[in-house]
Each structure stands twice: as C-alpha cells, then as structure tokens.
Design a protein around this nucleic acid. Structure first.
Lengths: 257, 257
DNA sequence: GGGTATTTGTCCGTATGTATT
DNA sequence: AAATACATACGGACAAATACC
C-alpha cells in the first residue's frame, strides 16, 4: 500500500524544495548524511535523487554534491511578425533588457534534400539545396541553433550570396526580393518538441539523458505565388525558451515577470 | 577513456532500435538474457534500460517485459485563427481523418485570481473569477486539459451562462459579444514547456517521473478597447501534440506525414 | 604541482516484492 | 497455483571528479 521508500524520500525532499526550505542553488545533504537521516541504504537515497533529477528539481555534481536547480530566466521569442518587412524568414531572437545576443557566422553547405526538406520546399528528394546553419548565444549561454534551406536554383539564377559564409544584411528576405523578385508573403511555423541528439546536448550543455527536451520549429516561407521559398529549422532548449504568438489586434506587451 | 558499461549497452540497444532491427512495439530480451549477453550484472543492464527509458525509446511493463515504444501519431492544433469569428478563445482541437474528439462538460468554479491570472486579466489579485475547466480526449486517449478564466464582473453584468456547467454554443466569444457587447479583436498565445504535476500525469497516463513534458499555452483574449477579457490556460503532452502558426498568406496544408 | 579528503558515479551480488501471464 | 519479468532495497567495493591544503 505504502509507496516505495525512495519515492517517500523524494517526496520529502521535493516538499522541502517547493516550500523554499531548500532554496535554489543550495546544496542538499550528502548521500551519506541522507542515508543516515532516512535510515535507508545509499542506493535507495540515490534512487530518490535520481527521480528528483529527472523531474528537473535537483542536479548532481561529482565531487561537489547535489544542488537545487536554479531556474533559468527564460528567453521569449515572438513567432508572429510582419512577413514582408520583418525577419520572418530566419527566426530572430529578441533580446530583453541587458541581454547580449551573439550569432555565429553562418556555416554554408550544399546538400541533397532529405525527404522532409524536399517535402517542405516541394522539390524532388535528393535535389540540391543550400543549407545555412547558425548558432546563437545569449549572455554567453548557448540558446538556439537554426538551419535554413534554399533551393539550389536560387543560386544559379543569381542569388550567389546565399553560398557565402557571411551574414546577409539587411536580411535574406529582402535580398531575394531584390535579386530574384521573390517576395515572401507569408510563412507557416510547425512546432514540435523532441529529445536532443548528442550534438545538440553537447552544444546546449544539456544532460545527455534527454530529460531536457527541445522545441523544433519548422518555418516554411512562401512567395507571392504560394510556392515554398525557404525552410528554416530551429531548435531551442525548452528549459530556457518560450514563444509568443499574436493574432489580430493585441496591445503591446510589457514583460513584468 | 571508455564510457561506462551501462552506456555502451544502452548505445548498442539504441542503435538496434534506430536501425529498426528492433521494431516499435517489439519486446526486448529480458534483463536476465541481456545480462548474459553483455556479461554484465543485472543492475548494470537495468541502468542501461533506465537510460533508454528516460530517453523515451523503451518502456518497461512489470511481469511482461521491456518494449520499444510505439510513437504516437501526433495531433496538430492550429494556433492562428480569425479572432473575431473563429474559436479564438478556447483553443479547439482540429481532428484529422477519422479522429473522434470528445470534450467533457465544463467544470465551473468561482475562484480567487492567482497572481498570474490577475496579471493576465489586469485585475486585482484575489478578486473573483469564473473558471471553466474542460478535458478533451481524442480516439479515447486523453489529449488536453484547459481552463478559461473570466472576470466575475461579466456574470454580474448579465453573462450568467458563464457559471452554468454546459457548453456555450455557438461559443463564448459570440455569447459575450451578444450579451455584453464585448468583441474579441485579438489574442496572444504564450507558449511554455514544463513537467507535469501528479494530477496531470495521472490524467494523461504519463509516467510520474516527468520524462514526458507538457506544453502550457496561455491565451489572453482582448476586447475592442484592448482590455484582456479572458485567459485560457491549456496543457498538452508534448509526446502527442504539435502546433501550427500561420502568418501572412499561407497556402492550404495537406497533411501527408 | 601533489596529496588527501570528500562526494558522486559505476558495478557487483543478493534477496524479496509485485504485476502479469 | 506456478512461472516469469520487472521493481525495490540492501550492502560492499572501487573509480572519477572536485576542492582544499
């Protein structure tokens, strides 16, 4: 009837954390101390801590101890912008007060379209695409990775800056409009959540057991004929990112919390 | 140098799963068999399986065995609709082919505004609000929970159907327009991801160790004066839900995958 | 830099409980 | 009722990471 001991221990510690009896950043008692305190074996105490770890309440540091996690101040990204003038293609992060956003130079590759890229751009699977990949940091913390795919035909028709490893200012949307007459009149964002792979866990400094997941947002941009002209795939760790969607008339937001 | 044994075992099994050598739904060898196969102790094999479990690749069933998880066919919800005519207030699920959506009768309560509700509705903390709560199933599977908050003043001014535990057809948006002259001209969705609490894990049949997280979407609706008129908080398990945001002109979507 | 104490990580063996078939 | 398979719990040993002197 009674729940297992490791759960009871975890519940007891959880209550202490929720009630701020143990404050964020504070160190818990060591496994040996908890073992004596609860009259359990060290492995049972470790099971309790393991549970709290996957719940995202504590984190363990070898050689140091177990600590209550400090919640990361989340970064909020607006998904709805004017598709014709605003960023609208790549998803840009909007920095809050005193936040410093740093984007890496794009890493440009010519690739064959994977099935999902081909479907989004409505081109043949295996045909060539330009891939532009960027990483973004905020205040020194890795925040997002994004890759934008363009049909290779754009380059052949004259948009050769797409294959240069530099930022395109004032933006690829207006560059493609100027060069090829392609106007982006809208985009669709498809939002999913999944566990990170090893590369992503490494870049974002996430635990490799997948307990912190990622938003994966597929943004397909459409030109004036309704044809897909670009696909941007962005990933953001869910522990430090939130999103806003505005529909219709919405008053300005003053972020207080 | 070498990674720990339980990781190597997990990696070996993971590779078999990714390569479809072990297909979704298929049973893995038992812990005892794996123990002999890898020449490790049962506890070490269990550590490997535990890792795969938090990665969401396998699930264990006492008395039966360990199985490769079957990926759930995700349900896609459109977040951008016409705020004046469409649902726009409550978030409605759009059913795919042959999917049966069932919404429970709303559970109506009068509550005091929590700080976050008060802030969203721009009313005083602790003032009274009407809370309408609904649960939704698709094809018999629990899919989402949502609670909408209205200022209690709406009821006093005549919108007394808000406190009846029935569906308001054709929708609360048009009901409030007819009754109080409040027209919703826009809304803002704020999208977060967090771990479920015990109640939510129970309703959605999620493991209580928090490895499946929830979208939590705060939708604030605004009337013609730019004043918040409603707050809808919805939660959706991330393992079975995705979202779409359309901006500008976007061609119709035919869902193929 | 080295050495030592502390703390968590890995791995083992064993016993017993619980859920399912 | 019996067999099977995972879940819980204990105790012990050594490794690895970190901090401190």
């Amino acid at each position: 009837m009674a729940s297992p001991m490791y759960r009871q221990i975890a519940e007891d510690l959880r209550a202490q954390i929720e009630s701020k009896e143990l404050s964020p950043g504070q160190q818990l008692r060591t496994e040996l101390e908890l073992r004596e305190h609860y009259g359990a074996s060290r492995n049972t105490v470790r099971d309790a801590i393991k549970l709290l770890t996957t719940l995202g309440l504590v984190e363990t540091k070898p050689g140091q101890g177990t600590f209550v996690v400090r919640k990361i101040d989340p970064h909020v990204t607006m998904l709805t912008t004017d598709p014709k003038t605003g960023p609208g293609g790549d998803i840009t992060q909007h920095s809050g007060v005193g936040q410093v956003v740093i984007s890496s130079d794009p890493q440009v590759e010519i690739q064959k379209a994977t099935p999902s890229v081909a479907e989004a751009l409505r081109i043949a699977e295996g045909s060539q695409v330009v891939s532009r990949h960027q990483k973004r940091h905020i205040d020194g913390t890795p925040w997002s990775m994004q890759t934008t795919f363009y049909p290779m035909g754009f380059v052949l028709k004259g948009a050769d800056r797409l294959i240069q490893a530099d930022d395109i200012v004032p933006g690829t949307v207006s560059y493609l409009a100027d060069t090829l007459g392609l106007r982006q009149i809208g985009y669709r964002d498809w939002i999913k959540v999944r566990t990170p792979d090893a590369t992503e866990a490494n870049f974002f400094n996430l635990p490799l057991d997948g307990r912190v997941s990622l938003y994966e947002i597929f943004r397909t941009g459409f030109d004036q004929t309704g044809t897909p002209m670009r696909l941007t795939v962005s990933v953001y760790p869910t522990d430090r990112n939130q999103f806003i969607v505005n529909v219709g008339d919405v008053p300005n937001l003053n972020i207080t919390s």
